[in-house]
Write a protein that binds this DNA or RNA. Structure first.
Lengths: 342, 342
DNA sequence: CTGTTAGCGCGTTCAT
DNA sequence: ATGAACGCGCTAACAG
């Protein structure tokens, strides 16, 4: 295979100027149909492929979206990415995925790359410090935050009703007859962690139950953290009789911990998780979960980004999607002292 | 924030030439320490960030690796990507992830993008047609195939001992006392599907059991396919008493099918799967699986790519990593007519 | 060791 | 409707 053909090679072969080839390639203005045909023919013959790098340099922008997610091992994010991709395709953009792994250093590096490569836009689940997103905004790179809120930062965002979902989850445990309900939530810097904790608190308050610090754990939103937090709750002098776990991977860790210690669900301990994993239905007992519209979150984020690219002056907007409580076996206590039927 | 500073802005401020700034930025040759200091100072003051697009154009290459995987919903691939990333970082490359979704059209599009953006190299789990990889090779873009073989294509590759792993898996079922063993494998165009099927055949032959076409299904390596294939096997006049399922997602689908129909593992049906999912240990009964060194596969692929970039004339090499049989409960038949203890 | 010059491939004026 | 000329920001030659 010969070296890559340039626009000049095509122009020469079609006996037109490079400008005309450029116009044909980009479908610009009106070019004589006969010339169009000649140019297309020459392009085919030379297997011409426009050099995107040169084009990007000239245009000062690319047709690439960076999607920076915080945990590629979490099905929540991979499903979300699918939603982004599907919309991006139809809008003429390509998606490049970056896994920050909840590591601020990696996040910083990927934002460097997005800036240096002049990415057209960025969809990000922020690690928690708004400074990183400000770097993007400062360079006039459109940004959409997903999953997590960035307080005080004027940026498009797509979220779910975290507090409300958590409240319903906790209220459901109360209804099922549990009375000493613990909570395993995420890092304090993440809005998903604090909002879900807030919902948990609100539900307790509404039920007239006390909020006890010793029943709350801040873990890392990962499996190992969920395992440890659960273990630590079980070691309490007076352990909880149920837990609300604020994300999917930690719930898996918590379940693993219960299995390891022989604690039976839902009788000895009830559980509700926020978000699930694709194969949750195979785990016994099946988990009661707050279901998120994950794929739709991705689509909504992509639409927001496309809209902003089309009109950069648009004021930032936040889209909040609803969650849904899906009741499984993990919160169905057999013998309940509660007057309200489960 | 002002518009992005260019190398000339820095040069002007530091009272040197643009070439000197370039040398400082790239750590090239020896520059007078005093000038280096002035340049660095100016860069800081102007918040200078090199324009990667311009650099790429000049150098005719980028420092980006495209990793094109065939199913972002499969933990196998996401774990593999982690391995790639970790090596890429240390080699000074950034990874952009592309999800072809086992769709030749998407794969084609991503290869277009990799070519157009002049990516430094590509790591790909090929959809099965060598033509796509040839496009890359033809443009002198270094390529490493992972997971799947590309017969007749001279390309670096990282694989596992598929046939051997499948053979051991099947032999294990025979040992456990199963006598009518079915197989759910993947699409015929993928080497992983055919190699694992071969291992299954070999094991049957070694055990003196007949190979029966009606016990073999070619599905799509996804959950739905596994479900359907399992359902179809169960509908046989004389259904199998065990199955070897050739990938993780299809195994999940198969298990789901068994649950739906009330078929009990391992007594009514034994199962061994090739590859697992991170949460397999929570599924009851636990699955017997052929474990792959997934993360290592990614690391090996990245090292191969880095090596080739360092020395493009190196002949293509294939790295084959070993698998390991991890025995779970799904293949432990209670009452066996077999003389060999399980 | 440093500066000057040229051009990577393309899109975009401005003429015609 | 078409083409000539310029420059996006950077780095590789070459001079000095």
């Amino acid at each position: 295979m010969a070296a890559l053909a340039t626009i000049y090679d095509v122009a020469q072969r079609a006996k037109v100027s490079a400008a005309t080839v450029s116009r044909v390639v980009n479908g610009r203005s009106s070019v004589d149909p006969a010339l169009v045909a000649r140019v297309r023919e020459a392009m085919r013959e030379l297997d011409y492929r426009p050099n995107a790098v040169a084009r990007n340099l000239r245009r000062n922008r690319t047709s690439l979206w960076a999607v920076i997610i915080s945990d590629i091992g979490n099905p929540f994010f991979t499903t979300l990415v699918r939603g982004v991709e599907d919309v991006a395709q139809t809008s003429g953009y390509s998606v490049v995925l970056c896994n920050s792994d909840e590591d601020p250093v990696k996040e910083h590096r990927y934002i460097d790359a997005a800036l240096a490569e002049q990415m057209a836009g960025v969809i990000i689940s922020p690690s928690g410090r708004p400074a990183e997103v400000h770097r993007l905004l400062g360079s006039r790179t459109p940004v959409v935050a997903v999953d997590r809120e960035l307080a005080g930062t004027p940026v498009d965002a797509v979220l779910v009703d975290n507090a409300h979902g958590a409240e319903r989850a906790t209220a459901h445990l109360v209804q099922a007859g549990y009375r000493r309900i613990g909570c395993v939530t995420g890092p304090r810097r993440l809005s998903t962690a604090t909002e879900r904790l807030r919902g948990y608190r609100d539900a307790l308050a509404a039920a007239g139950l006390p909020y006890e610090e010793e029943l709350v754990r801040h873990a890392d939103f990962r499996e190992a953290g969920g395992y440890q937090a659960m273990a630590s709750l079980l070691e309490l002098a007076c352990p909880p009789d149920a837990v609300f776990v604020a994300n999917n991977l930690m719930a898996i860790g918590a379940v693993r911990c219960l299995v390891a210690r022989g604690v039976r669900m839902p009788d000895e301990l009830g559980m509700v998780a926020f978000d699930d994993i694709p194969w949750a239905s195979l785990v016994r007992p099946t988990l009661t979960t707050v279901v998120q519209p994950t794929y739709e979150l991705g689509r909504a984020a992509a639409r927001l980004l496309a809209d902003r690219l089309a009109d950069p002056s648009r004021p930032p907007s936040t889209v909040t999607l609803p969650t849904e409580l899906r009741v499984g076996e993990s919160s169905a206590r057999a013998a309940t002292a509660d007057p309200v039927p489960g």
